[in-house]
Design a protein around this nucleic acid. Structure first.
Lengths: 366, 366
DNA sequence: TTGTACGCGTTATCAT
DNA sequence: ATGATAACGCGTACAA
């Protein structure tokens, strides 16, 4: 037995087959489609593999089959909390599959994305997850021509490449503004940073809602291309206040900015929400725990990543989803920072959670 | 020309070699060690490759060479801010190398880590980055036997597997407590969550510093295995207050907890730092921008990841570092939340940055 | 259900 | 410095 072992001492399929008394190809089939074997051979191969501690050689498999078991993931940032939640969802979904994740960071550059895409595609990935709907023409052409399933995540839009999962940032922003209107606010400012396409669409939603109400003014909008931060939130808010001291609410394009605004208000002794209401975006954990608690638009980030990876793996394995485009929606989580009738902000132990009031708004229905 | 193109229409090394008028192996050498070619052939292969748009087949390369160009990375969490910074450093360093990153999440389980390690090692990675120094015996044995460079990150300790980069969490905690002592605080509480090995060592540092001063009391310590969060910080602090109302400072094992304590103090109208001082750990961005600004222990997370990956790649390529163990140290960044003579907490625009005072303490020197 | 023959694209080895 | 030959370990295609 075992006379033709490889130099490296590693166990090959051939050894397993020999021990099991079958041909190599039968052993091979066992690992890819056990159902195709007779029960007898199946159990023999299984025990032989276990006994020898066989581990498939992925390189050989990829070379022979002309495809890899790699899922490529292109995201614009590794720092952003939003993407770490999405990523966790993706990794969790991939964990019990035979696919592994190959991650790359486009740094919010669609040219960088194009370059990475070319690299990825050359390795014939089993599937691809890309962020957003704003690829370059070149990227779009490559993706259309790619012979693997593709999921676009983070937002939904017309003309999907293949599958798509996300929500409407435009509608979500409109809902946030509508909530502020409902609380009686009129002079509502907008604070945005980084201004990637999705933040831009939140701004568009804000602008359209304000215009619909005849309340839009350009000076109510402060944005910057600078990466977002809590500190930046305070600085941008300060700008806004200087331009428009009469402002009665601020819609922040994300929660870090909102926290910065909260702190800046504290510094200036501006009462929230009596003088100025605050609404954030994403509903990070700390929003429920701030003082006062901060209203935000909840998005399903983990679920987005997790579902995207699951859908992709299913599609790779030939089970395409019923609906290739999935709208995960959002919810405006109303908290103290935007409540007209300010609720008690000093509960027994923690201001978090309990008093949240949700305003559900599945997106896509304006 | 090009008579023997592959079915898939892809350009192989053979095509490049043919166009360049050399043998395949010469073309192969060009990509791995250009210096080994004569100048004439070098330029011919180069232009042939460019003209044909040749992209190496990594699977074939891995199969033939018996090794991959993959760096395996094992980290305990994808959610934690700390690790997203480290990861960014790792990815940045790998970007301009020929190595790609294979990431896996151990979820703070050393058993899961062992399992993943087995998987990784089976693929013959070019190098490995693992978190911390608390592997299982089995893991340790596998790592010792692995024939690739390995870097342990996040902390330093005795008996490195191979290379190591981090800092002493024990010393960092002692420095934080020393700072509070210097500000006149005596009844200093400790708040910790998750209690992974590094948080445990911060606790150990706190305990030793307190004992040295004859001030340690068990009821000053509140910890939980629950994952950390801002909300949790408030809850644990509440526990602490109940046990020991006379407490005059809190050392938080991370900044999220510290932010939770800050909010809880606000809810309870406890003045910071007059009644209670706060010190966090990691120095996340928001600490400099909170009201009052929050003292924290700065750690070099990005640099840790970046240097780890660089060292690893250098080692893979045969350039082993002079010092295999690198202490990146830490700094206590003193801010308003722990200043005895409380500075103005309402500067013109933003309380951030400007007034930071640093207390440098390279670790490893107790 | 099982097996045979061959190719996947590259690099190692050993010459020259 | 360059080349011929033979793996590397597995899967596809087709046949039985």
């Amino acid at each position: 037995m075992g006379r033709n072992r490889t130099k490296s001492g590693k166990i090959r399929l051939a050894e397993v087959a020999e021990l099991a008394g079958v041909s190599p190809i039968t052993a091979s089939r066992f690992f890819r489609n056990p159902e195709a074997l007779s029960l007898a051979k199946r159990t023999r191969v299984e025990s032989a593999a276990r006994e020898l501690g066989y581990v498939p050689n992925l390189a050989a498999r990829a070379l022979a089959s002309q495809r890899t078991e790699v899922i490529g993931v292109l995201i614009p940032s590794l720092t952003n909390n939003v993407f770490s939640d999405v990523l966790r969802g993706i990794y969790d979904a991939s964990e019990n599959s035979r696919y592994s994740i190959q991650l790359s960071n486009t740094r919010y550059s669609i040219l960088q994305e194009e370059k990475l895409l070319r690299l990825f595609l050359a390795q014939k990935p089993a599937g691809l997850i890309v962020t957003g709907i704003d690829q370059t023409t070149e990227s779009r052409a490559m993706l259309d021509a790619a012979d693997c399933p593709i999921v676009q995540i983070m937002e939904i839009g017309p003309d999907p490449i293949d599958m798509m999962i996300g929500f409407s940032h435009y509608d979500a922003a409109r809902a946030a503004v509508a909530h502020l209107f409902a609380q009686g606010h009129r002079k509502i400012g907008f604070v945005g940073a980084r201004m990637d396409p999705r933040v831009q669409r939140r701004l568009d939603g804000y602008v359209s809602a304000m215009k619909d109400a005849g309340l839009f003014e350009q000076r109510l909008v402060v944005t910057t291309a600078t990466p977002t931060s809590v500190t930046l939130g305070g600085a941008l808010f300060t700008d806004l206040l200087t331009r428009e001291p009469g402002m009665d609410a601020v819609f922040c394009a994300n929660d870090d900015l909102a926290l910065g605004v909260l702190f800046e208000c504290r510094r200036r002794e501006i009462a929230i929400p009596e003088q100025i209401a605050i609404v954030g975006f994403n509903d990070l954990e700390f929003m429920a725990s701030a003082v006062p608690t901060l209203t935000s638009v909840r998005t399903n980030r983990y679920e987005m990543g997790n579902t995207a990876a699951s859908m992709l793996i299913d599609a790779i394995d030939g089970r395409r989803p019923e609906h290739p485009v999935l709208d995960l929606g959002f919810k405006v989580i109303e908290r103290q920072s935007s409540s007209a009738r300010r609720s008690d902000n000093r509960p027994a132990v923690s201001g978090a959670g309990a008093a949240n009031k949700m305003v559900a708004l599945p997106s896509g229905h304006d």
